[in-house]
Simulated assay, not measured.
Amino acid sequence: MSRPILASLDLQALGNNLQVVRRAAPTAKVWSVVKANAYGHGIDRVWRSLASTDGFAMLNLEEAILLRERGWKGPILMLEGFFHADELPLFDKYRLTTSLHSNWQIKALQNAQLQAPLDIYLKINSGMNRLGFMPDRVHTVWQQLRAINNVSSITLMSHFAEAERPDGIAGPMARITQAAEGLDAPRSLSNSAATLWHPEAHFDWVRPGIVLYGASPSGQWQDVANSGIRPVMTLSSEIIAVQTLKAGETVGYGCRYRASEEQRIGVVACGYADGYPRIAPSGTPVLVDGIRTATVGAISMDMLTVDLTPCPQAGIGTPVELWGKEIKIDEVAAAAGTVGYELMCALAPRVPVVTV
């Protein structure tokens, strides 16, 4: 029998989450963000379940080409644009919308030999200070782009650093408003958090990412618990061994956990080489045979250990949910001091994946 770890993807939940986004932003079109191989879910596995979207947004040219080859004919937005000028013929061939955030990209676009002009997303740096033109340069760049034959439509684009906070977009919105003054252009500003919680930022296109996959953009599940969002990925395994510790005995590397009394411990076929966070401490929630319990001791490469005190009936072969419908990925991530995004993207290639 093969190792029992498995990642299951609920494709109905994915479609449901897209509809939650549409209800949250009913007047905007939706870019479904499938970067990082659809946040670790596998773009080739999931894109059809999002095919009612208005467009897909991503980073990798190879994934954009894959979507075209699979039959997607709608818009594709490359969130960081092209990385080298010699990619522009492929942007032309596959009709990709490109973001523009640097002067060199403008020059490359101006000099390119294209069959037809490209749609452009002009990136405004509204305070995150990663990519984009400063607000006071946007009018100048706009005029430059309008004079280039290879440019078709222009949409203003930005990104929020703190949209999960009630007051987190006020400053960026003021800078974007300043930058866009007098420009007749559609806008795409909202990530998952702004889509859910800041309707004033919806405008023409929203760009949901993490919320499509059933986790909270704030990292706190309670923030989306009543939204209708459903987890898409369930990581499950089984107990492969049981140990009974005496009081004072330890388990795992570094002897980080010591039993205070006699205690049954289950060994689960899942470790950091599968994508489970190595730094998850004792007490990280886990579901054993439908009963909530917790990890104990260090996470190993291929195994982790759990407290079987709440589930005395559990034994070898008992099912375990590491995260999913009951143990939310946000809970595991919070215990490990990270976010659900990282855990999704860290799912290892050696973990079998099935769609449900």
Rank of each mutant, 00 (worst) to 15 (best):
R23D: 02
L183S: 10
V232H: 05
D302P: 13
H202R: 12
N125Q: 02
V351I: 09
D167L: 08
G219M: 13
V356N: 15
A273W: 06
L145P: 06
A294G: 14
K325M: 08
K93Q: 07
G297T: 07
N16W: 10
M233F: 14
N150I: 05
E181Y: 14
I329D: 00
L66Y: 08
F56R: 04
D167T: 09
I316Q: 14
K123T: 09
L212F: 02
L14W: 01
T140M: 15
R45W: 03
A161E: 13
S152T: 01
K73F: 08
I148W: 04
R68A: 07
G248P: 01
S32F: 04
Q143S: 13
V20K: 05
R350A: 12
A112F: 00
V33F: 05
I154A: 09
T250Y: 10
A13W: 07
L90A: 10
L118Q: 00
W104Q: 05
V138R: 00
T295I: 03
A193W: 07
C255A: 15
E342N: 15
F82M: 08
A25E: 05
R70F: 14
L183T: 12
L100Q: 00
V332S: 07
I279V: 15
S158W: 02
E63W: 03
Q110K: 15
L88K: 00
L131M: 10
N37M: 13
W205G: 01
T98Y: 00
A280N: 09
D307V: 02
L11E: 05
E69Q: 09
R256A: 10
E321V: 05
E261K: 14
A193Q: 08
C270L: 12
A269S: 13
W221Y: 14
T177M: 07
P285R: 12
V306R: 02
L61V: 08
A273F: 09
I316W: 12
L59A: 05
L304M: 15
S126V: 11
A273Y: 10
G254M: 05
T98D: 00
Y253Q: 09
L189A: 01
A346V: 01
E321P: 02
L118E: 05
S282V: 04
W142K: 00
I76N: 04
A269V: 11
W47D: 04
G71Y: 11
A348D: 02
V286R: 03
I154S: 08
P310E: 03
D274Y: 07
A25K: 02
D92A: 12
A85N: 14
Q115W: 11
E63V: 08
A174T: 11
R3F: 12
E200G: 09
K29E: 08
E162Q: 15
Y94C: 02
A51F: 11
I169N: 09
E249L: 05
G168S: 15
E200V: 06
W221L: 10
A28M: 07
I279A: 14
A334T: 10
G168T: 12
I148L: 03
V242W: 10
G340S: 07
V20G: 06
L96D: 00
Y276N: 04
N226I: 12
R175N: 12
A241M: 13
W221K: 09
T53W: 05
V34D: 06
T53N: 06
P231I: 14
R23C: 11
N111I: 08
I291E: 09
A185D: 14
I240F: 03
